[in-house]
């Protein structure tokens, strides 16, 4: 697997807009169809917002990836926030501690092909998603 990445900061709500635009450009460049571009950009928007709201010193890593002749886009959202104590609960539709709709994690998982989440209380959270062409 090869990847050449771009790291973007996630500190304010304006940063979420920049991440959306950069993910769109990368997804188009990697040849994803319009619907798939829309899905990964929407997932990126949800996860980037989570990072800004709940995290601290958040970043987004954007990579073009290739495996078994397939090309795709991989995004990694990382923060040094409080972490998530109960991942199973956090992944449930409608569960939120932030007053939103509680669709960020569960919804973005449905919008991509691969979804991984790691979190440690007091250390931070890392979410990695991949959408293949």
């Amino acid at each position: 697997m090869t990847g050449k990445g771009e790291i973007l900061p996630l500190r304010a709500s304006e940063d979420v807009v920049i991440v959306r635009q950069r993910v769109r450009a990368l997804a188009a460049q990697e040849g994803l169809k319009l619907v798939d571009q829309t899905k990964i950009v929407t997932a990126a928007s949800e996860l980037a917002r989570n990072t800004v709201i709940y995290g601290r010193d958040g970043t987004a890593l954007l990579e073009a990836v290739e495996a078994g002749g397939r090309r795709g886009v991989r995004l990694t959202f990382e923060d040094r926030g409080p972490g998530i104590a109960d991942l199973q609960l956090a992944m449930k539709d409608g569960y939120t501690t932030g007053g939103g709709l509680g669709l960020g994690l569960s919804g973005s998982k449905r919008l991509c092909n691969e979804f991984e989440i790691e979190s440690k209380v007091g250390v931070g959270t890392r979410v990695t998603i991949t959408r293949w062409r």
């Binding site: 619907v35 829309t38 919804g107 919008l111």
Partner: peptide, 14 residues
């Protein structure tokens, strides 16, 4: 609303 946006919204759960 663009068609791709509608598809994505429903899959997102909204």
């Amino acid at each position: 609303m663009q068609p791709a946006v509608a598809i994505t919204l429903v899959e997102l759960g909204l």
